[in-house]
Write a protein that binds this DNA or RNA. Structure first.
Lengths: 214, 214
DNA sequence: TGACACCTACCTACTGATAGGTAATCATAA
DNA sequence: TTATGATTACCTATCAGTAGGTAGGTGTCA
């Protein structure tokens, strides 16, 4: 792994040197490529973008991307791993912020809402779910693990809700967990289809109304 | 539109002539292509299949498909139109079968469950939603119309539920309609991700438990 | 201190495969 | 004889990926 704030010494589109010895560049190329690829994958799916698109966006040559990610499968794996890590960190943050199930699950829904980015992006795991046939077994494994980790986290918090009573009518935490994940993913899909974030709010409002009404 | 039971007169992989003058062929080529394309699009998305794949599946040459659908955009439009027609007919059938909102919405959910085909296919509109950027404006328009027609049908039946009391706790039919569509689409996505139809059942069980309990 | 080996991050120029699409032609049924 | 629905043979553009090269930094050892 390249140093996060390492200096850029390559040729091509060079980093502008400042008057000081520091460089302006915030991200290393690899991270920049990952961010860019995540963006486009969440808009157009895995089969919807090419190395050429990516090269154009980032401002290097197509062949140079192969230096960072030899094959597109390597990029896909790195994408889902990075995504899973970021997601896990976000869940840990939610856990540390509140001990009340309703607050945590409300934050969870809000996280999916923010991920919409105004109605034109999906959760990476939704975008990848359609392109399963194009993904490597290793990527699929990581994707499936992300999925089951999500379900586990949700189920634990619905179990918490049974104890703390912060959500009304929770009978079966496992069922609730699956239903909520389906709901937020479906809500994203609808908002993306209509390019209208309000549709996400409509679709989730029924669940959110159960929070804080024990 | 070609005659549904037309004869096949082409060369190449020919239809075997029976002893009688009738042909065994059930579908005309165009319909066969549409069925096949729908199948693969619902598995891999719009960007996930090519004319070459289709030609291989149907058993004619790639160039021959262009006779039926000059451009892939024409195929996409025909796909979504056929899909919308089939869907509308299914909703009309549901309407004619029962006057009770709970029965109708239960049948609606079951329809989405059947569409899963054992956990490896999605509703065409979900598959197309991810590939929006690759679709023509005309196809997008038809897709959006399908979407709003679905919402309308659902809202009407939740309004019916308010009157006939066959579903518990219906306060806002428009909200319920959006939430249910998000739920079934998300449930499909989850079942597809895990290749497990049971996940669809888990995700929808919460809603179905409200039916018939006024 | 300088020489040398090695590393990083790019580059140009290419490959074979595949994408969607076109033109001209041919066989058969009506 | 004409319409239909195929065919072969091709096109151009793009796909992921490779070969080989290069500027410039870094580590090591005499």
């Amino acid at each position: 792994m390249v140093c996060e704030f390492g200096t850029n010494t390559g040729r091509g589109i060079p980093v502008k040197a400042t008057e000081s010895s520091y460089r302006l560049r915030i991200m290393d190329r690899r991270t920049e490529l990952l961010k860019c690829a995540e963006n486009v994958a969440r808009r157009r799916g895995y089969d919807g973008f090419s190395y050429a698109d990516l090269a154009n966006d980032v401002g290097i040559r197509k062949a140079s991307i192969h230096y960072h990610f030899p094959a597109k499968a390597d990029l896909a794996l790195a994408l889902i791993e990075r995504y899973a890590d970021t997601f896990a960190a976000a869940l840990a943050m939610i856990d540390s912020t509140s001990d009340i199930a309703a607050d945590r699950l409300s934050a969870y829904v809000q996280m999916y809402r923010r991920a919409l980015s105004g109605g034109n992006k999906l959760c990476l795991c939704v975008a990848f779910a359609i392109s399963r046939d194009s993904l490597s077994p290793e990527t699929l494994e990581t994707l499936d693990k992300f999925h089951s980790d999500s379900i586990d986290w949700l189920r634990q918090n619905f179990e918490l809700a049974v104890d703390d009573g912060s959500i009304s009518g929770v009978d079966n935490p496992a069922v609730e967990a699956t239903a909520l994940l389906a709901m937020v993913e479906g809500a994203q899909l609808m908002a993306r289809a209509a390019h209208r974030v309000a549709d996400f709010d409509l679709a989730t409002q029924l669940f959110l109304s159960r929070l804080g009404n024990p």
